[in-house]
Design a protein around this nucleic acid. Structure first.
Ligand code: FES
Ligand code: FES
Lengths: 144, 144
DNA sequence: TTTAAATAGGACAAAATTATCCTATTAATT
DNA sequence: AATTAATAGGATAATTTTGTCCTATTTAAA
């Protein structure tokens, strides 16, 4: 569904959001531990997210990653997916034709478009705040 | 969503079904042309599908691929996807946790499970016969 | 019986994705 | 000012996926 990079990106952003709500900045090392991802690879993903202004990075000692509290419920999963995987999730054809196109649809087009729309809708309506709900209480998890 | 191999597999099977309905067997070369896929790679995919008894292969001159007419509306897309991509589509976690598990769900679990169920349902309820409807009339296409 | 046309399958190559390592830069603390 | 802890980013490596090539095998037809 999503690339590994994107999966790490969502999990990392969610963890950063969780800690930002508590008012603390987190280091790459801590993030990678808490979401069980390869440190250096996660760094690349976070660079990407930082460039896209989805997370803020602070260099130097006592630096790390954070998200402004006011933004946590504004940032949607769709933005993260788009920043990392691009629009293929939204515009790609389920059978791999050059581009999904209802003028010359593939045989699964009608059904596929619906599922994709549901997915898109889910991503666009889920904020990082939504993602954090339940994490503290252990109702949901970012690694396992 | 699906691997390239799987996309080729679905398109190839659909074309084979179309021709089998007309009572003719088709060669790998023709299939690759009609679905616009790399010949040798498509051969591997068809070997896989043949081993899984999703298509029948006939060796030798005048050989090729076919599907028994009685099976065309029995073979579902879900079988093709499973034969090539395995069960990751059905059992994988949207955020890449080891395994999707409602006992210790990731933050998108509930929403993701629904979408995945819709996809699964679509794949299980779409037969190769369904796929062929509209192809002859040019209402749908396997390449573009 | 030979030839030709087809799939099967092993070996290999290319490309994309995932992952690691090292150095540069930045900034707080000592 | 020096040290230390952090991200940035370039180079490279490993792995997976995708794609190619060649030979073996099979079968119909000449
Ligand atoms: S053309 Fe294939 S999904 Fe739209
Ligand atoms: S645990 Fe992530 S989708 Fe089920």
């Amino acid at each position: 569904m999503f690339s590994k990079a994107c999966e790490y990106g969502i999990r990392a952003s969610t963890y950063i959001a969780l800690k930002s709500l508590e008012g603390t900045r987190v280091s790459l090392k801590e993030i990678a531990e808490k979401i069980d991802s390869p440190v250096a690879f996660t760094a690349k993903v976070l660079q990407q997210l930082s460039k896209n202004h989805i997370v803020d990075s602070v260099k130097g000692a006592a630096g790390g990653f954070q998200i402004a509290k006011a933004n946590i419920d504004q940032v949607k999963l769709s933005q993260i997916v788009y920043a990392i995987d691009g629009n293929k999730v939204y515009e790609g054809c389920g059978l791999g034709l050059k581009k999904c196109n209802s003028n010359e649809p593939c045989p699964v087009h009608d059904k596929f478009v619906q599922i994709r729309a549901d997915l898109k809708n889910m991503l666009e309506s889920t904020s990082l705040y939504d993602m954090t709900v339940g994490l503290e209480e252990g109702l949901t998890a970012l690694k396992r």
